[in-house]
Amino acid sequence: MTTESLTTTPKSAARVAPSVLVGIGAFAAVGIYVLVSSLGLGLWTSLGPGPGLFPFAMGGVLVAMALVWLIQELRRPSETAEGVDRGLVVAVVVSLAILASVMDLLGFQLSTFLFLMYHLKLRGRRTWVTSLIIALTGSVGAFYAFNYGLNVALPVSAFPLLNTIGL
């Protein structure tokens, strides 16, 4: 009996992709959070509409749309999008986060030099000469171009030792 019921299920009944479900859930959750917290902000004051009115409406829209989307997906699941290159995403995001974390400590020049060398030499497999030229231009060169050309100050190192040698 069980095998029969399995075989009778139509093959076309594709499942909703997990990433889509996560997405719908996230939008609904954000919507509910906004609805609740905008109530706390006050929808209406004696002077008229309060600070919570507009967010409340948007939260409602978000929850409603998430529900409609869920119904649409259950009726006819959309084709799953192509996957992303996870290695690339992790490498770029982590390297950017590290760069942002150390930029104030090491200064713009040293931190972006290391960042560029990582992307050019380690990930990009460029030659040493190409990598060094581009990384130096992008770090030291950009620092001076922005400082003196555009009058925009990029950060210098917080360490006195590095600071005194101009980094």
Binding site: H119, G124, R125, L154
Partner: peptide
């Protein structure tokens, strides 16, 4: 790879400034 590295650098400068 070179273009990507330079664009990333530019985005960081842009966001920072």
């Amino acid at each position: 790879t070179i273009l990507t590295a330079l664009i990333l650098l530019f985005m960081v400068i842009g966001a920072y400034t």
